[in-house]
Nucleic acid binder design. Structure first.
Length: 271
DNA sequence: CGAATCTCCTGGAGGC
DNA sequence: TGCCTCCAGGAGATTC
């Protein structure tokens, strides 16, 4: 489900929890991508949530003794409830706060993660080797051009590699490449500096536009309040196989790249 | 080292 | 209605 805009939308929706004190933790189904540590049952109660940040597609919940790391995987969503309603089938994890509010993680496919990073072992291995955030100035044409210089794989796969840039998943990779008029199969190291400039700009604009729309809701994604995002209405290519290109009217194509569906217009996007 | 493939898991859609 | 196959927004692990 969630790429950067959906994760960031989720984080923003959870901000009202900052400053609240944890009352209890419920772990109903601990086997996500990695086991949810049972130690959270002792660690979190009575701690105050000090801050909520995001790195890549991880939501980082900051407490005095460490950081709770949340990842939504493919099908995860987080709800913010004002009272602990009865959990449903795939509601695997709750944090209940002293005032009754509940952070609830639902994840049918269980590719998500709930992990604890204690302050004394900072620099979690999952966060160590991540590339730059796409929306900061460090992610620019010069950086991207250098990062791609020794890569022969398809540019679409390259921008989905978290070592190159984080937060760009399967939807926004196709959309950004369409907006930049770059064919997804172009070898990464064949992009000119000029093309990198365009691609960086379009990745930023695509993600920002999606953020403004509250993310994309195809099936699993809802905001923490249950509201959907609307960016899917603005897709140029994703999921539009054989529909006319919104720019040139030629039919949109779908191919597999790295086992993922990839959408493009072969008239607008050149190698 | 880079690149391609495999893997985890459930659910929905479509064919028969 | 049921059974089968395929596909789905991630990304670490494994293999070549």
């Amino acid at each position: 489900m969630p790429e950067l805009p959906e994760v960031e939308t989720t984080r923003r929706g959870l901000l009202p929890l900052v400053g609240k004190v944890v009352k209890s933790v419920s772990i109903r189904h601990p086997t996500l991508r990695w086991p949810i540590p049972q130690s959270l049952l002792q660690i979190l109660p009575n701690q105050t949530l000090r801050g909520l940040t995001r790195r890549a597609k991880y939501i980082l919940c900051e407490y005095d003794t460490g950081t709770l790391l949340l990842h939504l995987g493919m099908s995860g969503r987080i709800q913010l409830l004002d009272t602990p309603y009865p959990p449903e089938k795939h509601d695997h994890f709750d944090i209940e706060f002293a005032d009754g509010h509940v952070l609830r993680l639902r994840d049918p496919r269980r590719f998500g993660a709930v992990l604890w990073i204690d302050n004394k072992d900072n620099n979690h291995v999952l966060l160590n080797s991540l590339g730059p955030e796409p929306l900061v100035v460090d992610f620019n044409a010069k950086y991207l051009h250098t990062a791609l210089s020794n890569k022969t794989l398809a540019i679409k796969n390259a921008i989905m590699d978290g070592h190159v840039v984080v937060g760009v998943g399967n939807i926004y990779a196709s959309e950004s490449l369409f907006r930049a008029r770059i064919h997804p199969e172009t070898a990464a190291n064949k992009l000119t500096l000029k093309q990198c400039e365009r691609l960086v700009a379009e990745i930023k604009s695509t993600l920002n536009d999606a953020l403004s729309a509250g993310g994309s809701s195809l099936r699993d994604f809802f905001g923490v309040d249950g509201n959907i995002g609307y960016f899917q209405q603005e897709y140029f290519v994703y999921g539009r196989t054989n529909e006319p290109c919104k720019v040139c009217a030629k039919l949109i194509k779908c191919i597999r790249l790295g086992q993922r569906s990839t959408f493009y217009c072969d008239k607008c996007q050149k190698r």
